[in-house]
Design a protein around this nucleic acid. Structure first.
Lengths: 196, 196
DNA sequence: TCGCCCATGTAAGCCGTTACATGATTTA
DNA sequence: TAAATCATGTAACGGCTTACATGGGCGA
């Protein structure tokens, strides 16, 4: 097991296994999938995906079939093996370390007393809008999901439930972030909000 | 300017400048400071701090004085130069890229339909408690700050305002995170919450 | 025709973590 | 006696980003 564990270098491996647990995909498809809902909380470039897939295959956690295509480049479609599914389960049960956050905007907020208040307020308003836009995307994503998945959205053994959970997190995160930006902007403009 | 910009390799440099804008500190002190409130959204080890300080000094953004101590090791106390303050201001006005989030727990949530619901619920409850504990810390941090800073907390040109802003962000973040964990735990236990 | 989509890879370099290295003083 | 605090560095390694490399089909 110790030799096998080393096969999965980083968390990215489990991200890929989690995607393959739902359906077979090529490296290209996996890279695309790492943008929508999963990708809101884990991201990777294709240059990271292809080598990782090779490592996973060496470890016996995934296997691929070459699909020859006429009008497009050939592709390798990967699927999860039994060992891969077991590895994914083991990871799910293992302890999860807290993520260390690195957020440049919050870091700027720490030094915002040195900035021009009006300009800073404008900046925070822009970010509030950006996060509000993300929020709206997630919310419409959830709406679509309700249409597609129906009651399965609430069944803990349904793959839709996983998407649901991630979307809810995204919604909460973006809402909070947007509100914080708005709050800061108002403070900077002198129209304080919130009790002292 | 282009040659000068290269002096600050990463965001860490600005984090250090932001700390030094408040008071002079040694590399050791800076590393410690990168744990409380700033450090909730930016972190670094001392092995990263010392070389970065050297780079900042070469660029003329900080300067140091050697303080000889009898019962403790000598130390270099760094202070911000005028150029450093200007660089910090320029950074504050510059565009801020959105942080790409990487959160292993949310990634697990995506695959949680493959896990044992009871065990998964227990895990989410634990994380809910962890984040609730962080929330409580931030809230008491804000209380203390109110005692220390008073009205300055709400003055956009006061250094306390920066701490205030970061703490508010931490409070919102941890509250939302904790609530999400709790929501997920309840879903997994079958006692659904929230309208379908 | 210019650029995007599909599709898979390799290579260079940076940022950050962990570990190595040293050493006196205080506290449990 | 063991461990933590203060204090400053260097070195190895790994993950991630950016860029290099190739190439046909399709839409604006």
């Amino acid at each position: 097991m110790s030799a096998r564990d080393k096969a999965i270098s980083s968390t990215l491996g489990y991200a890929l296994l989690g995607l393959l647990a739902r359906e077979e995909r090529s490296g290209y498809d996996l890279t695309q999938a790492l943008k929508n809902p999963v990708g809101y909380f884990w991201f990777a470039q294709h240059s990271q995906v292809y080598p990782e897939l090779a490592r996973l295959e060496t470890a016996g956690l995934v296997a691929h079939t070459l699909i020859e295509q006429a009008d497009r480049p050939d592709k390798k479609v990967y699927r999860l093996t039994d060992m891969g599914r077991a590895a994914l389960s083991a990871w799910l049960n293992a302890d999860t370390e807290l993520p260390r956050k690195r957020d440049e905007l919050v870091l700027k907020a720490y030094s915002i007393w040195l900035a021009d208040p009006a300009a800073a307020a404008r900046m925070m308003r822009e970010h509030a809008q950006t996060h509000a836009a993300h929020l709206a995307e997630f919310q419409s994503g959830l709406s679509n999901l309700e249409g597609e998945a129906g009651a399965a959205l609430w069944q803990p053994d349904s793959p839709w439930f996983g998407v649901h959970a991630v979307l809810r997190r995204g919604i909460g995160y973006e809402r909070e972030y947007s509100e914080w930006c708005e709050w800061l902007a108002q403070c900077l403009e002198g129209t304080e909000k919130g009790s002292p």
